[in-house]
Write a protein that binds this DNA or RNA. Structure first.
Lengths: 132, 132
DNA sequence: TTCTCTGCAAATGCTTTGCAGAGGC
DNA sequence: GCCTCTGCAAAGCATTTGCAGAGAA
């Protein structure tokens, strides 16, 4: 499972995983992916999903999202973007806005920033409605 | 281990854990804490550290830092602040600057933002020097 | 035919839990 | 003495790994 796996086989399981991820905005976990694919392939194992996610990640086709302290989420949108996280229902929503954040040079002491991720925590619309 | 544990006992193990965390800027993991405390209490168990961290977290004395996808880190600095993360050595550095980031209201669709965390990823000074 | 991929089972690593005895207060 | 805390062992999850057989190319 190296970084430049060239001859990727188009197995039906892999195709189903990729189809599920395609355009998926829900930041699914491996379990979410499994639950979808298992409908079509009742014998698929979690290990297969894990192995495929690993390949897709190494190929740069999905991004690992480290927001949930308990399990990893995956995002097929690999462009640079930020997240809104509902602290109630844990939903993760994309924020496709570019913010211009600059850390003063003298503060950095030669730390070279390459990317910036912003996580906005709060309460989403539907959770706010439920609260009342 | 409820949220408002009032009669916290000052056991030597707990005192050692709190002493280690006091002013600690290294965002230690439970293992880091254990490694320090076990020097003074060779019989202490990891479970004790986990249980104490859980109490301290619920009391708002430490913050869980979800940056490392593989293990949880803890930060005794519970003020609002941001982080610089070295993608090479995984070191986490505090950024005590307040940024004024506003997401356009119409973008939010009633999502109510309460806190904002910014993670700056890059290469730290010492890793940059080593590279050459 | 070749070589990757799948599915199973076992293993790993972090974290949690149950419980009996120890020890703060 | 009461009741929380500790330490141990076992359990619980998410994730990884090894391997033999299946199947894509």
């Amino acid at each position: 499972m190296d970084k430049q796996t060239l001859r990727l086989k188009q197995t039906p399981q892999r195709m189903a995983i990729m189809k599920y991820l395609q355009g998926n905005k829900n930041h699914p976990t491996v379990e979410d992916i499994y639950n979808y694919v298992v409908e079509q392939f009742p014998n698929i194992s979690l290990a297969t999903v894990y192995k495929n996610i690993d390949i897709l990640k190494n190929m740069g086709l999905v991004q690992e999202v480290t927001i949930d302290p308990d399990k990893k989420h995956y995002d097929p949108d690999t462009r640079h973007h930020h997240h809104l996280i509902c602290v109630q229902c844990k939903k993760i929503i994309d924020v496709d806005i570019d913010f211009d954040i600059r850390v003063p040079k003298d503060y950095l002491e030669d730390f070279e920033i390459t990317t910036t991720h912003i996580d906005f925590y709060g309460i989403c619309k539907s959770c706010k409605t439920k609260e009342k």
